[in-house]
C-alpha cells in the first residue's frame, strides 16, 4: 500500500500543493473581506444582513471544492489511461481491487484532509467575530459544497477510468446532474436532512470506478 501511495504522491504532489495554496489564498481572502465589511458597515448591519437575508460568509469557496475534486481525478487517472498505462498498474502483483481502492483512497483522503482543514480554519476564523449560530449556519451551508468536491472526485475518476468515449460522456453528464443537486441556492441548513443519504451515495460512488476498471480489464471498446 505504501508503494501505491508513493506513486500517487509523485504523480499528484505539485497539484496537491497548488490546491493547498489556492485554498489558503481563498480562506485568507474570505477573512480579509469579512473583516473589511465589518469595519466598513459596522457589526449591526452585517449581523442583520447575515441573519435576515441569509448572507453567506463562505460563499466565495462554493465552486473550489468541486473544481479541486474533478481536477485531482484528472491529474491522477488521465496519465493512467493515456497509452493504457493502467495495464502496468494492474499487472503489479497486488489484487486489482485493492490496487484501485488504494489509488482512490489516496485521492479521497487528500481531499477529505484538505476540505476538513479548510472548513475547520474557516469556522475557527469566523468564530472570532461572529456568533456561534452564524458560524454554524455557514458550516451547514458549506458542507454540501465540500461534499460536492468528494463527489466530483469519485465521479470524475469513474469517468476518467471508463474506456469507451460514448460511455465516458454519459458518465460525465450523469456526474454533472448528480453534483448540480448539491449547488442549488437553498436556505442555510436545507441540506441537513439530506446528509445521511449524501454519505450513503458517496460510499456507492466509490465503487463506480471499480466498474470502469473492470470494463477496462475486459478490453471493452
Amino acid at each position: 500500500m505504501n508503494a501505491i501511495i508513493y506513486k500517487e504522491w509523485i504523480k499528484t504532489r505539485r497539484f496537491v500543493l497548488l490546491l493547498g495554496v489556492l485554498f489558503a489564498a481563498l480562506i485568507t481572502y474570505i477573512f480579509l473581506w469579512s473583516g473589511q465589511m465589518m469595519e466598513a458597515s459596522g457589526a449591526v448591519i452585517i449581523w442583520e444582513t447575515i441573519i435576515g437575508k441569509d448572507m453567506r460568509l463562505v460563499g466565495y469557496i462554493k465552486y473550489l471544492p468541486p473544481a479541486a475534486g474533478i481536477l485531482l481525478a484528472i491529474v491522477q487517472f488521465a496519465p493512467e489511461m493515456q497509452s493504457k498505462r493502467l495495464k502496468l498498474t494492474l499487472h503489479l502483483p497486488v489484487n486489482e481491487g485493492k490496487m484501485m481502492c488504494g489509488m482512490l483512497g489516496y485521492g479521497f483522503t487528500v481531499l477529505l484532509a484538505l476540505f476538513s482543514l479548510s472548513c475547520a480554519i474557516l469556522m475557527l476564523g469566523l468564530s472570532v467575530r461572529y456568533a456561534h449560530e452564524i458560524v454554524m449556519a455557514n458550516f451547514w451551508v458549506s458542507l454540501p459544497w465540500f461534499a460536492g468536491g468528494l463527489f466530483t472526485y469519485l465521479l470524475g475518476s469513474w469517468t476518467c477510468l471508463e474506456p469507451v468515449w460514448k460511455q465516458r460522456i454519459f458518465n460525465a453528464v450523469t456526474a454533472a446532474c448528480l453534483v448540480a443537486t448539491l449547488y442549488t441556492d437553498q436556505m442555510s441548513g436545507a441540506y441537513a436532512t439530506y446528509l445521511p443519504y449524501m454519505l450513503a451515495l458517496l460510499a456507492v460512488c466509490f465503487f463506480f470506478s471499480l466498474y470502469s476498471t473492470a470494463r477496462f480489464k475486459d478490453g471493452v471498446q
Binding site: 508503494a3 508513493y6 506513486k7 509523485i10 504523480k11 496519465p79 497509452s83 493504457k84 498505462r85 495495464k87 502496468l88 498498474t89 499487472h91 503489479l92 502483483p93 497486488v94 489484487n95
Partner: peptide, 28 residues
C-alpha cells in the same frame, strides 16, 4: 498476484509511468 510477479510485461512503445524519474521508478 503470485503469478503476476512471475510475468514481466513490456507494453508497445516502452510505455512506463513517465511521471517518475529513474530512481523513483526503481524504488516504486
Amino acid at each position: 498476484p503470485a503469478a503476476k510477479s512471475r510475468i514481466g510485461l513490456l507494453l508497445e512503445g516502452h510505455i512506463q509511468h513517465s511521471y517518475f524519474n529513474i530512481e523513483q521508478i526503481e524504488k516504486f
